[in-house]
């Protein structure tokens, strides 16, 4: 883990309210594992005060990409970043995904901005791996960032791909490919993750979830970001952010 200054290389809107921030960093981040995150801060203002956690979407030698959604004050400040501006970023943090097992086919499941947490894993997908990405509407989908091969896109209003949720997408995939032993990797809203977990349980499928939480420190010190698991409260930042779906108490 390092605390470093990232220089903005580009920062552009890829779909409605979704932005892709590309940073050059002094220390290489190649050792980052899929599912890990950074704590990022724009400027030195006390308002907003805390850093914000963001998944690593893509990592090159000394380049980092973060896919983010503008939702509040901190992300609005990120949207206003121009080329050459700097941000502070600390990471990589947290435990990444465990690899899929032998004989299993990886299936990534992204709900909306949840795509941001699956970027590094997507790069490691074998040819037979799949992605199901769900959005509410067409204008929310960053199509340029979604792999072409073996991917299913859903939208709740039917304006893009299959009408429905990611669960509808997964079920369609199962009908198409028949008897395949999948291993699920999901990131998205709490409701979506719960639905994916229930699906995984009813199909006896391994399923890992990348969770998000309000964080203060990001390194395990403050115990602020906990979620309830079957073995008590766990810190999303340090014990996660990836958890096996059967650990979570919904």
């Amino acid at each position: 883990m390092k605390d470093q200054v990232g220089v903005v290389l580009s920062n552009r809107e890829v779909s409605r309210d979704l932005f892709l921030l590309r940073l050059r960093v002094p220390y290489q981040m190649r050792e980052s594992r899929p599912g890990q995150f950074v704590m990022l801060k724009v400027g030195t203002s006390h308002d907003p005060l805390l850093r914000r956690p963001f998944s690593l979407f893509k990592v090159r030698e000394r380049e980092v990409e973060i896919l983010y959604k503008v939702v509040g004050k901190a992300t609005s400040m990120m949207r206003d970043l121009r080329d050459g501006d700097t941000v502070s970023l600390m990471g990589p943090l947290g435990n990444g995904f465990q690899p899929w097992g032998e004989g299993e086919t990886p299936l990534l499941v992204a709900g909306g901005i949840g795509l941001a947490g699956l970027g590094l894993l997507e790069e490691m997908l074998p040819e037979e791996g799949f992605l199901v990405a769900g959005f509410r509407t067409r204008d929310e989908a960053p199509l340029e960032l979604i792999r072409k091969r073996n991917s299913i896109i859903t939208s709740e209003d039917g304006s893009l791909g299959i009408k429905g949720t990611v669960i509808d997408g997964i079920e369609m995939l199962l009908r198409e490919v028949g008897k395949t032993k999948f291993s699920l990797f999901a990131c998205g809203s709490r409701g979506m993750l719960k639905a994916v977990s229930l699906f995984a349980r009813s199909h006896s499928t391994n399923c890992q979830l990348l969770l998000e939480s309000y964080m203060a420190c990001g390194v395990g010190a403050c115990q602020g970001c906990v979620i309830l698991t079957h073995s008590g409260y766990k810190r999303v930042c340090r014990d996660g952010p990836v958890f096996s779906s059967d650990q979570i108490v919904w």
Binding site: H46, D47, L49, A216, Y233
Partner: peptide, 20 residues
């Protein structure tokens, strides 16, 4: 001690509330 139920952190202007 298990601590309090989440959310345990919320940011407020120039500060934060915690209930760890």
């Amino acid at each position: 001690q298990e601590g309090n139920p989440p959310p345990r952190i919320v940011e407020t202007p120039c500060g934060m509330l915690n209930s760890i």
